[in-house]
Design a protein around this nucleic acid. Structure first.
Lengths: 339, 339
DNA sequence: GCCCGAGTCGTTCCCGATAACATCGCGACA
DNA sequence: TGTCGCGATGTTATCGGGAACGACTCGGGC
């Protein structure tokens, strides 16, 4: 800790002080076997004395490993992607990796390919894509990949590694809940169907609804936003003939509730509304929102685990489906007819 | 673009193909003057042919510049910090930098010092700290800094570069608005006072309230969360003697409204509530929330601009205060007495 | 007493770029 | 005509590590 010789010490200075070659220092640093305990001690002391830290850039050049994971996030504002990014960063850190995010904003001139390009040029060891559009996935499928790439999406994929939230189960939970309350007419307000998650929820809703004999009705395609949902609800002339709405995410649900309220409809009195995400505020909406919670931490860990395996060319763990959980609050109730 | 020779081409292969030395290629890459146009053309062709990309890791080692900015985020879940992080990433990208975030979670064993350490070891060119606690700033003040460090906080600081949201103006806007509606009894539910932003808003509220002759009353110290605010509101026995509440952030405001509603109080009929942040959902709350909007994009750009200047040892632009804007919606109205 | 092999540790080269300095050719000028 | 100077380019060192391979030491088996 002493001897703050102006500039950062390097491995050879440590070696000199310890009276060994720089390779021996390197070996100590990297926990090689076959170092005499006495030697190791001397090296460690020298490291301590100089307050030496290995230069990770130099190491990356020598090993061709940067210990970095690039993360491409489409739609970085929403709760889901943000939480996933944070979870991935956390898991990566735990595994000795750091993370470099690139957000693809609405109308960003940067294409997914550009992002991949930029990331690989920077030398990341792997790339993780969060919550993408199917068009992006299609585009990505076409770019030559020099590093492992994982896509967090709804279904398995032959081209990429995948980890996914079990949207099927989540949507099924919602439908089951509504059906058990007595609803037989459910509207789904989806996200943009180009979004994989939106598509998955929509499909799952459809399938489950059909299996219960819920009346078929065309879904309303939203855009994840509360604004859209609000406008839609405002547009309702009279109490519609469906008794419940399954919104693709909490934002949509809240916009719906706002609009319905302004139209003079009561939730859940006139209509039940369910969301998806369980944003932190969901339990404080009026009424508190019934929604689906996803385990982002587990998602992040699984993603990093797979990526690590791929980087180190170990056997890749099985594709994981992260479970979901229905959180029942006050925005759902039995439909009028049943009461 | 042809000739996908198995591995990534390096600068010397390009040089060989162009029939020049690798240094000439380097000069072309870095836009040096004094390259014969003809030579430059040949080099460019060779680059094209091999689809060559300079290895940024090697460049970083040689130049001692990684073109990376480390970002330390305390409380990565909230809307503010998240938006700032995204804005910084965007601005950094525009300036040819990439970003490496480290989130300091609640109860994270990682201290701010550890984060700085990890980042500098990785060789980042600068560090940006978002939305910190004052205790963190104090701790950071003590660590030797080998790279420029900027803290996004409320007030200027002799030790660090700073950029700040003008919390003073924001809080003043809120007080002015409430006073102009006729309120003379305003409660402030703050964030944790160890948080710089919370402290700044609290102080600014206090100052402005005093200057208007608003009745003094002890503030309620919250924790940014809707849960806390909800519990506080639930605890209210009868209609309190204040007529408006200034919440330190939108989450607090929404928790408050939820709790008040459950207690049977109407917002804004019985009480006005103002938030801070303008989260995307704020306009869809019931009632739509009056709140303060902050220009995170400007903040991000300013931060990156200052950091760049510091990195390149140019003159540092003046400390910037990012303006705020009051968004009046339906959660505020004149107090009963006045109507 | 000799040889062999495991345990230690050092030498040299390499990763892929930039920095610093050297060199070469050629026109201007004394 | 010699040379000074500058434009254009090449040569070598350097950044801070790790990989590959070589060499030395020492103990045990024959």
């Amino acid at each position: 800790m002493a001897n703050v010789g102006s500039d950062k010490p390097n491995i050879r200075q440590v070696a000199t002080i310890a009276g060994v070659s720089h390779m021996t220092v390197s070996r100590v640093l990297n926990d090689y076997p076959n170092i005499k305990p006495e030697t190791r001690r001397r090296v460690l002391e020298a490291i301590e004395e100089l307050d030496y830290r290995p230069n990770l850039v130099a190491r990356a050049l020598a090993t061709q490993r940067s210990q970095r994971i690039g993360v491409i996030v489409e739609s970085a504002v929403a709760h889901g992607p943000t939480s996933i990014l944070r979870a991935v960063e956390l898991a990566a850190r735990g595994a000795g990796y750091s993370v470099t995010p690139i957000a693809l904003l609405e109308g960003d001139p940067l294409t997914p390919q550009d992002a991949v390009d930029s990331l690989t040029t920077q030398g990341v060891d792997a790339i993780c894509v969060i919550a993408p559009r199917s068009s992006s996935v299609a585009a990505l499928r076409r770019v030559a990949m020099s590093v492992p790439m994982l896509v967090i999406k709804a279904d398995a994929d032959p081209t990429f590694l995948t980890v996914s939230i079990d949207q099927n189960a989540g949507a099924a939970l919602v439908v089951d809940h509504l059906v058990s309350l007595g609803h037989r007419d459910i509207l789904h307000v989806s996200g943009p169907l180009d979004w994989l998650d939106a598509r998955a929820r929509e499909r799952a809703f459809h399938t489950r609804a059909k299996s219960w004999g819920v009346r078929e009705r065309p879904i309303v395609v939203g855009d994840w936003s509360a604004d859209f949902a609000y406008d839609f609800a405002i547009g309702l002339k009279r109490l519609p003939d469906f008794t419940a709405i399954f919104a693709a995410n909490d934002d949509t649900a809240i916009g719906l509730i706002h609009g319905l309220h302004e139209r003079g409809f009561d939730v859940p009195g006139d209509l039940s509304v369910v969301g998806f995400d369980d944003v932190p505020l969901a339990r404080h909406f009026l009424p508190p929102l019934t929604t689906v919670r996803q385990d982002f931490e587990a998602l992040g860990s699984a993603a990093v685990e797979m990526l690590r395996a791929a980087i180190e060319k170990r056997e890749i763990p099985q594709v994981t489906r992260i479970p979901t959980e229905l959180v029942v609050r006050e925005s759902t109730a039995a439909p009028r007819e049943v009461r």
